[in-house]
Simulated scan of single mutants.
Amino acid sequence: MKRMASQGDMVLSFHDSLLRTSDVDTLVPGNWLNDNIIAFAFEYFEKVQFKLHEKDVSFISPDVTQFIKLNCGDELGIFLEPLCLTSKKYIFLVVNDESSAARAGGSHWSLLMFSRPENTFYHHDSCNKSNTKSAKVVAMSIEIFLRATRKVQFKNEESPQQENTCDCGMYAICNTELLCKKHLDEDEVDLINTITPEYVTKKRQEMVNLIHKLASTSK
């Protein structure tokens, strides 16, 4: 699927991610992350940070998740087949609250994680479970393609809560990274006490630094 159009000079081309200045600008504190930045973060997790676990984990970009939420039937099956979801232990999806295919945007991101060992969808929402309806739609749409041996459960997890209206995308990214460290790297992780507003602000700058580092090494 085509991601949301962005403007400005190209900053980085990283596998399937193309970031422009307008995308990177959304990482400035006080800005709402667009889907290009979240897709880049997921691609970096897949291609670099958690590459050793690529057989066990799938990171599904926001545009694909939105397609899953708004479509069903044979078309969706053809679209999802190349993702090999039946072999993945963990699947991460960032869910947008936009319900219309006619417009892009939305106002909130949350994280949906499928855990095959626990046969459960875990929903991590940094805004008081406000995106539960959209997350459940995604879970219901994708469940049949997981080929689980029994009905998959859905659980709203206790999650770190944002203190503003713009950090939801960063919370979704931070939750994803720490959950991967917990389930893939077997690190001890405490989401609630780790992902604070200060942690999220620091992570924004770390991502800016990472993007510019990758851009400089790719020239």
Rank of each mutant, 00 (worst) to 15 (best):
D97V: 00
E163M: 15
T132W: 06
T149K: 15
S216I: 09
D63C: 14
K219Q: 13
G105C: 12
K129V: 10
T26K: 10
T194S: 14
G8Q: 01
F154R: 06
L146R: 05
D23Q: 07
Q7D: 13
T201M: 12
T120Y: 10
N128H: 15
H123S: 09
Q66F: 02
G106S: 09
S216N: 05
I60M: 02
D97L: 05
K151Q: 06
I144N: 13
E177H: 11
V138L: 00
S99I: 05
T26H: 08
N128S: 13
V94W: 04
E198D: 12
A101L: 11
I195E: 02
C166M: 14
S216C: 11
K2I: 07
S58G: 03
E198P: 00
L85P: 03
G105L: 13
V48Q: 01
L33P: 01
L214H: 05
R204H: 07
E158L: 14
K88R: 09
S126P: 00
D97N: 05
Y90P: 01
R147F: 15
M140E: 05
D56I: 08
M113W: 10
G106M: 00
C168S: 11
L85H: 01
V64T: 06
K69Y: 03
F79Y: 04
M170H: 03
I211W: 03
T165Y: 11
S22K: 11
A39M: 03
D97Y: 02
K133C: 05
N156C: 07
M113H: 10
K219N: 15
V200G: 12
V28P: 00
W32T: 13
V200Y: 12
T176D: 08
E98M: 04
M10Q: 12
F145L: 11
R20H: 11
S115H: 04
E158T: 15
K151R: 11
H212L: 14
L85R: 01
Y171D: 07
F114R: 04
T26E: 08
L76G: 03
F42I: 02
I192L: 14
S13T: 12
D23I: 06
S87F: 06
E177W: 09
K129F: 13
S218M: 08
M10R: 14
K151W: 00
N131D: 09
A139Y: 04
S218D: 09
Q205T: 10
S87M: 03
V11E: 10
H124I: 03
F121M: 08
C174R: 10
K213G: 10
D25Q: 15
P197N: 14
G8T: 01
F50E: 03
V48G: 01
N119F: 08
L210R: 06
T165S: 13
E157V: 12
A5S: 09
F14D: 05
R147P: 00
R147D: 13
K151M: 06
F145A: 14
M207W: 01
D185T: 02
L93F: 08
D56V: 06
A102E: 15
D23F: 02
K51Q: 01
G8L: 06
N34K: 09
N164K: 13
S107V: 15
T21E: 15
K181A: 06
D125H: 07
V48K: 04
E143M: 13
S13E: 09
E177Q: 08
T132Q: 08
Y199S: 08
D185L: 08
N156D: 04
S87E: 04
